[in-house]
Design a protein around this nucleic acid. Sequence first.
DNA 1: ATGAAAGCGCTAACAT
DNA 2: ATGTTAGCGCTTTCAT
Lengths: 334, 334
Amino acid sequence: MATIHDVAKHAGVAPITVSRVINNSGYVSRATRERVERAVVELGYVPNMLARGLRSKRTNTLALVMTDITNPFFTVIARGVEDAARKSGYSVIYCNTDESETEEFKYAQILAQKQVDGVILVPACSKSKSVEFFQSNDIPVVLIDRSIPDVETDAVRCDSVSGAYQLVKLLLALGHTRIAVISGPRGVSTAEDRIDGYRLALADAGLGENEQIFYGSFTQVSGYDLAVKVMKQIPPPTALFCANNFISIGVLKAFRDIRIRVPEDVALAGFDDLPVNLVVDPFITVAAQPAYEMGQRATELLLERLTGEAPDECQQVILPIEIITRKSSGQAIV
Amino acid sequence: MATIHDVAKHAGVAPITVSRVINNSGYVSRATRERVERAVVELGYVPNMLARGLRSKRTNTLALVMTDITNPFFTVIARGVEDAARKSGYSVIYCNTDESETEEFKYAQILAQKQVDGVILVPACSKSKSVEFFQSNDIPVVLIDRSIPDVETDAVRCDSVSGAYQLVKLLLALGHTRIAVISGPRGVSTAEDRIDGYRLALADAGLGENEQIFYGSFTQVSGYDLAVKVMKQIPPPTALFCANNFISIGVLKAFRDIRIRVPEDVALAGFDDLPVNLVVDPFITVAAQPAYEMGQRATELLLERLTGEAPDECQQVILPIEIITRKSSGQAIV
DNA sequence: ATGAAAGCGCTAACAT
DNA sequence: ATGTTAGCGCTTTCAT
């Protein structure tokens, strides 16, 4: 593979001149530029990013660390990140932690080794070990979707408390008084916040006594198992609030298997919509988060931080949630 | 950030000794090793992969270039690749070409610049420009899912002709004689092969005259539009063969909108299943490809090529397809 | 407008 | 079992 040296020799110039041409930096005469460009093509020269990064201390690479890459919510975030990054000439490395703190920290090491310029992180838990590691290596971090207490970083997320509150309000307005919530893992901010919103709505309605709270994981299997368990309560709830899309799917599967009709027997509302290209019949009433925009904004924050355009204090961006009313919650509110 | 030099000084050894410790290469005495390891921890040392790659000419990084990262079929392939790669200490860079030949070639350049050790490629078209580029830069390529004529590479795929043939046979066995196929783009091997399988099955049944072939793209929107068009044929088909999962979803959406019942009015069979965690009611009769295994096998082939274990001749792995009969094709065959 | 020298952090090759 | 030397390919810095 040809090096910058080969190109320089071929064009009769110094390596640094070739560097100036391919990076559009510094003065190069028209004639020289053309000679260099011809040499580049003739030799099929491709710059070596390892050498460039080693010398310049910048790799033009970001990382997106997610907890579940099979969840369309995160996939859509990823596209938002990708598009925003590419527009500014950055590449993105995707990492899947499977909700594991250990995996997250492993990736943190790998990413530091790869000298990524910055990281967008969906934290697997509320501990700050990975964030502190990044920061101690001078790698800026933007938190996305979930928050961590007592760390100073830029962050982008939606208001989970408010989203859950609105969804449960909606179920209450339909006359339900026994509403259960199936949520994600303890210690994950979105799981906790959505429970908080649920409790707030019940309390507002004077139904604080009726709380039925189930922690689990943000997966279809967990949703299935807890749905079965929930319906064994006496008396069983008449409505269910699912804290994410996979939980909703698991619940629907369980209800199909144990012959419970939605919404006739139990009403259902959940967090996170599914992308249109995956769903034949959008059926679930949801609090939809603007995933693509979340990815975009997080990337913009990170890029501003990298270029020094950002203010010294950290920025928190809270994006609005959209409540989409569909069949699963029962008859529409007039 | 601490360098190997800092660690060496701190431990009272030469940099190369530190290198031997962190790479587990060459002889290092127990005592020295321990001193070095302590220094690594105390300084929070993280090796710089750019420097290592520049020197050693190996990045321990593979790339997976796909045509549609939103399609679960490719997402599952990606997990197969990821798992196999990590097991051998490799990282993976994911690239999405959106079925664009131009994007594919852009990524080829980027990946060469990043000095990836090898590439797994779902080609966007049957031209071999990107493959030739990789090969001229000494980067081994494994083709996955789709083939390209006249190139010498390792490859992993399923037998699309046979899968389509079996699916259409099944529809024929249910008594259908007017079966249409909605496929992907011309020039893409899987789109063409699935049409070939369809034609073969019809010809076998002496129904060659009844061919109704529709090219489009492997997307939900294309499936929707062509479904509407197909049903305007006079007489309309009584069964439909969809060449991938997104086409099937688009067709089902169209049928819901134009009030055509599946399978009562039209039977349906399609290529590619959807992952269980995304689907409440698996409904479509499909030819399911072992996507995870495809990703795994492709990675293994690539790794063997990199380590020199592979034979000189290229290897073609053809994996078996599973036909899963469900409601969409009508009553089960006894 | 162009170039020379130096060095980023690491490891291959060759000592000892 | 450990170290020395050199250099991977590029860009920073400082000339000219």
